[in-house]
């Protein structure tokens, strides 16, 4: 349903961040985008959702099509109306609004506002904890609860494609597992396609159908998750597994210097 074709993104008219990134999200699937810091994962998401301009970024080449329609250059609110919703990195809940008001804000583009109550119950169905916190200011929630709320806002918008930027960031490991199970559940029950950006490759691949490895502004490896898990390089660099036991940091570093995917 979503095709990104060879895009280039430049920040401040100088810094080339994406250098020919391509990817595809099929209908109803979960796609994981893995890679280290600065690889261009978040930038990829922002170029889809139209939030690049707010950061001084610009799409200079390539195309982004959604159901066959070119959507690059659309404003963020047009994109949300098309059915693509991004949950930003670092949760970004509205701190001074209550949980319930945050959810209402998430439903901003919805036309059928009579269903708000019903949809809020949907959110509470996935995240029962939010229900008990509904009238609390979001700024006072724990990191995990804020992440639930951030995803909950996404559900309120009823998107066909949900973009999640590092949902595991700064959250207790136990809770990370729970939240990813919830994401899987949303994908199944609502039929929402999900594109998830993660540094925590283990947990992301545990729910994804398809994975991309991003390095230096382009995708260097793409495969169904089962294949990715078999891949030696991925096992070593992203999943922390190795035949000869754990390598020390110095060796890894020198190895990385030589390594080229393309």
């Amino acid at each position: 349903m979503l095709h990104i074709n060879n895009i280039e993104v430049v920040y401040s008219k100088m810094i080339l961040v994406l250098k020919g990134m391509s990817l595809e999200v099929p209908e109803g699937k979960i796609v994981a985008l893995l890679g280290s810091n600065g690889a261009g994962k978040s930038t990829t998401l922002k170029s889809i959702s139209g939030l690049l301009a707010g950061d001084g970024g610009e799409l200079t080449k390539g195309s982004i099509t959604y159901h066959g329609e070119e959507i690059s250059g659309f404003s963020p609110d047009q994109i949300v109306q098309k059915g693509i919703f991004q949950s930003m990195e670092g949760r970004r809940v509205f701190k001074h609004l209550t949980v319930e008001e945050n959810l209402i804000a998430g439903a901003h583009t919805r036309k059928d506002r009579n269903h708000l109550k019903h949809d809020m119950e949907r959110v509470y169905h996935y995240f029962p904890k939010l229900k008990t916190l509904r009238s609390r200011h979001a700024g006072l929630l724990s990191g995990g609860e804020q992440q639930m709320l951030a995803i909950g806002r996404g559900i309120m918008a009823k998107p066909k494609l949900l973009l999640l930027d590092e949902p595991s960031l700064g959250i207790a490991p136990l809770l990370v597992k729970e939240i990813f199970q919830n994401i899987k559940q949303i994908n199944k029950e609502e039929g929402t396609s999900i594109l998830v950006v993660e540094q925590n490759a283990n947990v992301a691949l545990s729910i994804a159908d398809y994975g991309y490895i991003v390095e230096d502004g382009r995708s260097v490896l793409e495969a169904p998750v089962s294949e990715l898990m078999e891949n030696k390089e991925v096992q070593e660099h992203y999943l922390g597994m190795s035949d000869e036991g754990r390598k020390n940091y110095r060796e890894v570093k020198s190895y990385r210097k030589k390594k080229r995917w393309v």
Partner: peptide
């Protein structure tokens, strides 16, 4: 009104909700 408060709180995040 809620959208206005959301923008006051976090402009970028509000934009990502589809608030103009």
């Amino acid at each position: 009104g809620i959208a206005m408060r959301a923008v006051a709180d976090d402009l970028q995040a509000a934009a990502s909700m589809g608030i103009s």
